[in-house]
């Protein structure tokens, strides 16, 4: 796949005007391009870092987080380009192993990330679909493919469940909405590291009563309930560790 095709594909995927801060062509940098300064453009190392952080966050939180398909797809394109480059090198070139090692590492992170998300989708299907339907187009948590997967998973599950329920006595032959709803526990405790300085964070004591104010400073670390910082996790102000 050449650069232009990949570019078109990613842009189409976004289905909106390219955000000016993400210079897609830079993401698909070829072997021969010179080094670029990484001020505001999202270079490949930065995207990789973002994916790693997303992986950690997803691993350590109970609920599904906003998807990062822009980065994942861009990184995937990068992987394909890299594999193509490798195939062009002479077979005894030492660089082959080095590139391959890195690709294996990146593949691991991406597949683990996607797998964790799928597990959550399978566990909380109903609630995730419910909440997703209420979100605006810009604010979706599931990627396009994940949404399709969730919908068909839900359908299959319901069909299967109904098959079984039909064989039950009449007064238990159906389940209400609340009975089939499984929700994540958003109050579970998490470890965080803060990237910002921020006041005004109120954390209740463990009985859920008195709140006290906590001041976050850069690089400070805490253990606290997830729901107190869920927004900060989603906007990247804090990192789950």
């Amino acid at each position: 796949m050449c650069l232009e095709e990949a570019l078109v594909r990613v842009k189409k995927y976004l289905m909106m005007e390219t955000d000016s801060s993400i210079d897609i062509s830079r993401l698909l940098r070829d072997e021969d391009e010179e080094n670029i300064s990484d001020d505001e453009e999202f270079t490949a190392p930065i995207v990789l870092n973002l994916i790693e952080n997303a992986w950690l966050n997803e691993k350590l939180s109970a609920e599904i987080l906003p998807h990062k398909s822009i980065y994942v797809d861009a990184m995937y394109q990068q992987i394909l380009t890299m594999e193509d480059n490798i195939s062009k090198l002479p077979s005894d070139d030492i660089r082959i192993d080095i590139y391959q090692l890195e690709l294996d590492r990146i593949r691991y992170i991406i597949t683990s990330y996607l797998r964790i998300r799928l597990e959550k989708i399978e566990r909380f299907t109903k609630q995730i679909l419910q909440q997703e339907a209420q979100r605006s187009v810009d604010d979706q948590y599931l990627s396009f493919h994940e949404l399709q997967y969730a919908k068909s998973f839900q359908e299959l599950n319901e069909k299967h469940l109904n098959l079984v329920l039909k064989k039950m006595p009449a007064n238990v032959a159906s389940l209400s909405h609340s009975q089939t709803l499984i929700r994540p526990n958003l109050e579970h405790f998490v470890f965080i590291r803060s990237r910002v300085s921020q006041d005004g964070l109120f954390i209740p004591d463990i009985a859920g009563n008195e709140e006290r104010e906590v001041k976050l400073t850069e690089n400070s670390q805490f253990i606290l309930p997830y729901n107190s910082v869920s927004e900060l996790v989603k906007n990247n102000s804090v990192q789950l560790i």
Binding site: A62, R123, F124, L175, S178, Q179, T180, L181, I182, R183, P184, N185, H188
Partner: peptide, 10 residues
């Protein structure tokens, strides 16, 4: 440990 809330099938 399970990170879901108590539910019907628990």
């Amino acid at each position: 440990m399970k990170l879901c809330r108590s539910h019907y099938f628990d």
